[in-house]
Amino acid sequence: MPRYFTDEHEWIDVEGESATVGITDYAQEQLGDIVFVELPDTGTQVEKGGEAAVVESVKAASDVYAPITGEIMETNSALEDDPALVNTSPEEEGWFFRMTIGDSSELEGLMDDKAYKTFVDSL
């Protein structure tokens, strides 16, 4: 199952026709203590680069953009009661939403694990 990364510090796991999206460990580290995650409604159409979710840390609100175009299929209800999951397990239990893959060619411009690591090291 390939995992891609965006330069906005989201990860996206592709599983057949759908994909799971979250923010990276680097992103949660930068945001600090996360107190609330506003997730999109199931059925929402999102566009690549468009606003999909909002992460509220103690400090500030930050937008999370959709890494690809598609429809929101499911959101991680565990984040409602325990948004700190994004801090403790950003790349597993702290996932944000599952979505359809509207245009698989959009995946081509994304980074793989190695490229993302190089990108983060350059910051």
């Binding site: 906005e8 400090k59 500030a60 609100a61 930050s62 937008d63 999370v64 953009y65």
Partner: peptide, 10 residues
């Protein structure tokens, strides 16, 4: 991910 800078206190 975008929006307010990470360091933004307010």
């Amino acid at each position: 991910m975008n929006g307010a800078p990470f360091w933004c206190v307010c």
